[in-house]
């Protein structure tokens, strides 16, 4: 196996070599299927207007300009960017605290009412009341037009919670029981044993939350009235769709739109390799058990 820690890479048969090459080739093709459209996006965003107007989308560069990027930077990007960072960081923090704590509690083997609790939670995935009743609740809590409305009401994702709970319940009970007997408090167990062992899932779920909070658009539009509080996603969508309106005389060619898209993706893309490290290499459950 190719696990980084695994020391079993001693012999390779011919069949294995063939498989490795075929596999690499296949994954190369899959990556290409992603990279070509991505390349089109990037090249288009860097192409001058005259080229883009003629071709629509460009794959092979014919002249490069950074004009669109500088334009976006000057269009109030930074303040919207700041808003986005504030909202994303704080809501991911809140989300993670709630999800880890609740996931841990739900993972207890003989928890009172566990079955009911899980159904109580999963039922909400199926039964979605729609935006208007949700809006009324948020409104009655006085959160409209404040960032709280973007942090609290969407704090828990049932999907992530169940993944978290599922993972934590696979942690050997003996490990937790031992700590409990040693007089460790529940929070102590959580912090000293469960969280360190759960780093891969915590990394993955953090990523899920960060991305979904970063990409959040609908709730910002619904819950925020003051446009100086709008986040990046809203600003960029405005820039993109301005020209789609029937009467607008704004003209945004594809190069500008693609540049806008790249600018929304970059911050979270940068974050990815840092988080990836934690879920790709993982933690040795075996070594902790000893």
């Amino acid at each position: 196996m190719s696990r980084e820690s695994s020391g079993t890479l001693q012999y390779t048969s011919v069949g294995r070599k063939v498989f490795n090459i075929a596999n690499a080739l296949f994954l190369f093709l899959v990556s290409m299927a992603v990279l070509i459209p991505l390349l089109i996006v990037i090249v288009t965003s860097l192409s001058p207007d005259s080229v883009v107007a003629r071709e629509g989308y460009v794959l092979i560069p014919q002249g490069i300009t950074f004009e669109n990027y500088t334009k976006i930077f000057k269009s109030g990007y930074m303040s919207a960017f700041r808003n986005s960072i504030i909202v994303t960081i704080s809501s991911t923090l809140v989300s993670m605290v709630l999800t880890v704590v609740m996931g841990y509690a739900m993972a207890q083997k003989d928890l009172i009412g566990k079955k009911f609790l899980i159904r109580f939670v999963v039922a909400t995935m199926v039964l979605d009341a729609g935006i208007i009743p949700f809006y009324l609740v948020v409104k009655n809590l006085g959160m409209i037009d404040s960032y709280l409305s973007l942090i609290i009401p969407t704090a828990i994702s049932t999907y992530n919670l169940i993944l978290m709970k599922n993972y934590m319940s696979s942690i050997p009970t003996s490990l937790i029981e031992a700590a409990r007997i040693d007089g460790c408090s529940e929070l102590g167990i959580l912090f000293r044993i469960v969280i360190p062992v759960s780093i891969p899932i915590i990394a993955a779920v953090t990523l899920f939350y960060t991305v979904s909070h970063w990409n959040n658009y609908l709730h910002v539009v619904m819950f925020i009235n003051d446009s100086s509080k709008y986040t990046l996603q809203v600003l960029l969508r405005q820039l993109i769709f301005q020209s789609e309106s029937a009467i607008s005389s704004a003209s945004a060619l594809n190069n500008f739109k693609m540049a806008v898209m790249v600018m929304t993706m970059i911050p979270v893309l940068i974050l990815y390799p840092f988080i990836q490290r934690y879920f790709i290499s993982g933690i040795m459950l075996g070594s902790i058990k000893e």
Binding site: V101, Y104, L117, V121, I132, P133, L136, I156, L161
Partner: peptide, 22 residues
């Protein structure tokens, strides 16, 4: 453990179950 569950359950009641009245 049950105390740890309280915030989560409250959250579900407020933001998931109350809107269901809708």
């Amino acid at each position: 453990i049950l105390i740890l569950l309280i915030p989560g359950i409250l959250w579900y009641i407020i933001f998931k179950y109350t809107p269901m009245l809708g």
